[in-house]
């Protein structure tokens, strides 16, 4: 008798637990506003990334085409992957002195792991993390970027 009671108890418990599970999925089937899908390429216009999101390293320039990079190479040392290469040149200043200035700030996006160490190490806040994350390209070579604009100058007052 005890066997039979147990037997039917098992069946009852089984059916009950299965129906409880089905209630959850049934709830979501009937409540379509709970859907969490983000339709990515469609919501591009309204999609804003968080301001700290690390998408790529960029070098902001002001309206006079001036940047803040002094060419100290702190970021190059800080980078664990060697994705930053700074080529410097000697520039003749108006007062006749020669000063080290950057020629090209080469940034290999394909090597970068977005670890933020270069940005943290920069003493003059010349580079920041950009929010663009759509980096897919057909040619790998285009991932090698030069961050300073052509003919850009060092911002006055940054040393």
């Amino acid at each position: 008798m005890a066997f039979l009671v147990n037997y039917f108890k098992t069946i009852y418990k089984t059916l009950k637990s299965l129906l409880t599970g089905m209630k959850v999925t049934g709830y979501y089937f009937t409540h379509l506003r709970e859907i969490h899908t983000e339709e990515y390429p469609d919501n591009r216009a309204t999609l804003t990334m968080f301001d700290r999101f690390r998408g790529e390293v960029i070098m902001p320039h002001n309206t006079d085409n001036e940047h803040r990079c002094t060419g100290c190479q702190a970021c190059e040392i800080a980078c664990p992957n060697g994705s930053i290469k700074i080529i410097t040149k000697q520039e003749l200043l108006p007062d006749g002195k020669k000063k080290k200035r950057i020629d090209t700030f080469v940034y290999h996006l394909d090597l970068c792991t977005m670890c933020n160490l270069c940005v943290v190490s920069c003493p003059s806040d010349a580079i920041v993390m950009g929010q663009n994350f759509e980096h897919s390209v057909y040619d790998k070579k285009t991932l090698k970027k030069i961050l300073n604009n052509p003919d850009s100058k060092l911002m006055a007052g940054v040393e």
């Binding site: 999925t25 049934g26 979501y28 089937f29 379509l32 709970e34 859907i35 899908t37 339709e39």
Partner: peptide
């Protein structure tokens, strides 16, 4: 579609 709606997808 049924699967998606139950799984809070589209």
């Amino acid at each position: 579609r049924v699967a998606a709606f139950m799984e809070i997808r589209l």
